[in-house]
Simulated assay, not measured.
Amino acid sequence: MRLQKYMAHCGVASRRKAEQMIAEGRVQINGEVVTFPGTQVREIDEVLVDGKRIAPEQHVYILLNKPKGVVSTSSDRHADQTLLDLIHSHARLYSVGRLDKETSGLLILTNDGDLTFKLTHPSKHVTKTYRSTVRGKVEASALKCLRNGVSIPMDDGSRYQTQSAEVEVAKENRGSTVLIIRISEGKKRQVRKMCAAVGHPVIHLERTAIGSLTDPSLKPGQWRYLTSDEIEQLKAEH
């Protein structure tokens, strides 16, 4: 098994993060520092990360309904509350993707680096569904723009043209509209930026599904373990 994949199996980090750790010289195999991610690991090999031995661990899969106000990190000394403050688990869990602090909704936490890679890598096109309440009445022209792709600002000052999206009007209120938006990419604060780009800033945003995985009965702050069927379903997503 390749080293970065082995590290992911051990719950150390995602494959992409593991590759970075390897390149930084933080990994040893049988006492030798290894800097090539593709190095093969055998069952008899001793692998150390930052001087500590690692070994495959039992995978844990949790579905959490993240409340507004909680940051999508395992640890942040500046945050009032993190994901792990809501979860009771001894496993080293990582969030599969992120939701910004003001966005609520479904997140998967796991120590399965392979699944994390599959669900977050841009080439996999896993759909995420959002319920977005925006200001104003959204006209057909704005819906068309959202569906075809819009230009949004990036943190580095560049612009990004979003891919096509599924967008439908769920409800029209006085002064606001509820949209169901499905995207298969995950730029930072993408849905918020998309809605702002067509003149309808987000008032409230919630992720309601990851691929085919959803659970309307899961209240904000609640979590549960995924079933074996749900895990296999996620692994089959593409």
Results as ranks from 00 to 15, higher is better:
S14M: 04
L179W: 13
K5S: 03
A91G: 07
P56S: 02
K101P: 00
K128H: 12
E172Y: 05
I210R: 04
E32F: 07
I29Y: 10
K66M: 06
H59T: 10
Q190C: 03
P67V: 08
R207G: 02
V47I: 15
Q40W: 02
R2Q: 11
D215A: 06
C10K: 06
N65F: 03
R135F: 12
R174N: 09
I22S: 01
V70Y: 00
L64C: 06
S132A: 15
A79N: 04
K144Q: 15
R159A: 06
L234C: 07
G97I: 03
V169E: 06
K219V: 14
D114G: 03
Q222T: 02
E168R: 12
K219C: 11
V202A: 02
A196K: 14
P201R: 14
L234D: 14
I44T: 13
Y225C: 15
A196S: 14
H9I: 00
G221P: 13
T39K: 12
P122V: 01
V49W: 07
G157I: 09
A13M: 09
R189C: 02
K68C: 03
Q20P: 00
A55D: 09
V178S: 07
G51E: 15
N30R: 15
D85H: 15
T35Q: 13
A165M: 12
S72L: 04
R16E: 06
R2H: 13
